[in-house]
Amino acid sequence: MTNKLGTLYGVSLGPGDPGLITRRAWQLLSGSGHWTYPVRKKNGDSYALDIALRAGLALPAAHTPLLFPMTHDSGILARYWLEAAQTVLARLQRGEDVLFLVEGDASTYSTFGHLQRSVRALQPDVPVEIVPGVSSFHAAAARCGEPLADVDDTIAIVPAGYGIAQIERMLADFDTLVLLKVKPLLDDIIELLRRRDLLAQGWFVEKAGAPEERMVHDLASLQGETVNYLSLLIIKNPGRQRGEMQRGCRKKKETPDD
């Protein structure tokens, strides 16, 4: 048995378009590392794995799905995180590199962070490399043709689960607001945007870059609809942007010429 530990890689694949896979991720996926990927239920599909397969990469004969159920029960989650960490660590201890496939970016609201912490809780000296990737909100903004931020604009990127009160507060504080995982609160968010006269200032994007991608600018049309878990909203606050621009113009005028 080798004493050298393998490396755990968080391999970011982008939000859905295989063309957004980086050269570094492609290099690793074309190598000898053992593929692991998240599934939400036993024998279920993996969105991250699907991105790699649609890119034309061949699934290795040996590969391991890791089960992470959709639940907020911390006790249940802890058990599955431990099982996944033990499965991964056994291969790392044999000197194998392990690749964990991640949709989007592995450092942004990703299951990889939980896996990394769980593995290192069992063995702190496990080497880890995170391969950065295109995040869903960057891809969504590009598809909508909307800049997320310009010049001195401020931007907030948060899960919609923070709640309507917090979302309303952030609308006053930021020029652009990106809300991730909007499915549970979509109707309430639409009502808030209607009340703030911002319905025309938003984009809804579902599965950005995937074959099933959907973009909706008429946010009111989504009222009452059940949307996919992998969906987000980009909301612009033009009133606040005008104020920032006016302040910037005043500052510029007050600055003496060189």
Rank of each mutant, 00 (worst) to 15 (best):
L20A: 09
Q86H: 04
Q123F: 02
L222Y: 12
L67C: 10
G14W: 10
S231M: 07
L13G: 03
G239E: 08
S12F: 11
T176A: 01
D150K: 10
T64G: 02
K251G: 09
P65Q: 07
G202I: 05
Q93Y: 11
G10V: 06
L13K: 06
R91L: 07
A139H: 04
V128Y: 07
P184M: 10
Q86C: 05
W203H: 03
L77P: 01
G248M: 05
T22V: 07
E96Q: 12
A220H: 13
R54M: 13
D197A: 11
G33W: 13
E146K: 01
R194Y: 12
S118N: 10
T154M: 08
G104K: 05
P69K: 10
N3T: 12
S107I: 08
G56W: 05
D73P: 02
F137Q: 01
N228D: 15
R120K: 15
T71D: 03
E254V: 08
L59S: 11
V119E: 06
G202E: 06
A140T: 06
Q223C: 01
V151K: 15
I155H: 08
K42D: 13
I234L: 10
T87F: 00
F204V: 00
V102D: 03
L20V: 09
G113H: 09
G113L: 14
A58C: 07
P127F: 12
S74Y: 11
A220F: 08
D73V: 00
T22P: 01
L101I: 08
F112N: 00
T108S: 06
L29K: 02
R214M: 04
L5Y: 10
T64N: 02
A160R: 01
N3E: 11
S231G: 09
L198V: 02
E96N: 01
L20C: 07
P256D: 06
S136F: 05
V134W: 05
G19E: 15
D17P: 00
W81S: 00
E103P: 03
Q241C: 02
I155V: 15
V158R: 11
Q166M: 13
F137R: 03
P65E: 05
F174C: 11
H63D: 13
G133L: 05
F137C: 01
Q27W: 12
E244G: 01
I155E: 06
E213V: 00
R240E: 09
W26R: 13
Y37V: 07
D105G: 04
S135R: 05
R54L: 08
F68I: 10
G163F: 08
M70Y: 09
R250C: 08
D153R: 05
D152A: 12
L193Y: 05
P147F: 14
